[in-house]
Amino acid sequence: MNKTIRTRTWILLFAVLLMASLAMTAWIMRRKAPGTTACIYSDGVLIRTVDLNSVTESFEFSVISERGENRIRVEPGRICVVDADCRDQICVKKGWLSESATPIVCLPHRLVIRLEAGSADVDAVSR
């Protein structure tokens, strides 16, 4: 029986781990994104950016890939997935993204929406 780990040890381990994870979760949930530019990635490729702060009128658009479709809605200061033909609907249930650092993810469609620093990322404008 001395080969097995004692139950007390297990309980202690999981308790500590649970506390640490809860603390981390709380900390992450309060973390703010570096900016308000929503960047929409499909299969790892950046396909669109929207500066949420400069949006005055709401609009919707769809991101369509061979894996499926996600309908995205943008309102002043926030963005969400309103509809998707994926199985789990996690992206829709996640709701609005306005300042949180945790991205909206649709794993079945490989879609990610996350907030990044402002549009100062343009080095020059061709005109």
Binding site: I40, L46, I47, R48, T49, V50, D51, S54, F59, E60, F61, V74, S119
Partner: peptide, 8 residues
């Protein structure tokens, strides 16, 4: 990728 008002 499109940006700003053209994102939609």
């Amino acid at each position: 990728h499109t940006a700003g008002a053209y994102a939609s």
